[in-house]
């Protein structure tokens, strides 16, 4: 693949108090690429994802997305933190799907999807509604547009959450274990929607324990352990002939 680089992280470090959650992490994701991040619990996968869209502030290093330095403005040889409004603007084009869905419970499925386009992008209610209905149809939930999240199953809520992320017309969507909170029989319907999204050319970074998805859908796989990004390469290679023995051990453990 030779398309342009959409996300690039260089030497990213993140501490929580004295605990170092990310050690000089580097990552490159190209436009249209689906990249899975795998690794044991506590290895820093969520933290890395959250640093990319500024839900966490990094301690050192730099992250670019969509050609822009994220969270900071360069002036001379210093990087100055951006304002709340500027950070909000950068987040518009980076969608995120959470493990626990985090739909707005006081809004219907449709209202969840049009909230961002109308309030943030300033789209007209009519245009946003039409686009939202299209997206809900695409995730198979056109008939649930008027339902509140509490009236939907976990799988349906997660599909609404994906539609909500797409409503912002992002250039990149981050997924943090999108199927881990779901009953086993509901996992497939969410993965189907993600397959469809990947096929449509959306750039995706997916933290997941679904090895099937990593193998069949993603282009590249990154393995993290102990706050370090151990290796990152084409999924077929990383999943079958990893360079690093720790990756091999992890794969052996999850595929048992």
């Amino acid at each position: 693949m030779t398309s342009e680089i959409l996300v690039k992280a260089v030497d990213v470090c993140k501490r929580f108090g004295t605990f170092k959650a990310l050690h000089e992490v580097g990552l490159e994701v190209r436009k249209g690429e689906v990249s899975c991040i795998i690794g044991p619990s506590g290895s820093g996968k969520s933290t890395l994802l959250r640093c990319i869209n500024l839900l966490e502030r990094i301690d050192s290093g730099a992250i670019w997305a969509n050609g822009e330095l994220i969270g900071y403005r360069r002036d001379g040889n210093k990087l100055y933190e951006l304002s709340d409004v500027e950070i909000a603007r950068q987040r518009r084009s980076i969608g995120m799907v959470f493990q626990r869905f985090n739909l707005f419970p006081h809004k219907t499925a449709l209202e969840n999807v049009i909230e961002g386009p109308v309030q943030v992008l300033g789209e007209s209610a009519k245009a946003a509604r039409e686009h939202a209905m299209e997206l809900l149809k695409r995730v198979g939930l056109a008939d649930k547009a008027g339902n509140y999240p509490a009236e939907l199953s976990g799988g349906q809520q997660q599909r609404v959450a994906i539609a909500r992320a797409m409503g912002m017309r992002p250039s990149l969507i981050l997924f943090d274990e999108p199927t881990s909170a779901l009953d086993p029989e509901l996992v497939a319907e969410v993965l189907d929607v993600m397959n469809d999204l990947a096929a449509s050319g959306m750039t995706m970074i997916v933290v997941t324990h679904e090895m099937g998805f990593a193998r069949n859908v993603s282009n590249t796989v990154a393995f993290m352990d102990g706050g370090r990004l151990i290796e990152h390469g084409p999924s077929a290679r990383v999943l079958t002939q990893p360079d690093n023995p720790r990756t091999a051990d992890f794969l052996k453990a999850v595929q048992r």
């Binding site: 839900l55 739909l103 961002g116 309030q119 909500r164």
Partner: peptide
């Protein structure tokens, strides 16, 4: 967090 990820201030 969900509100921030859709670009709200």
């Amino acid at each position: 967090e969900a509100a921030r990820t859709i670009g709200m201030t």
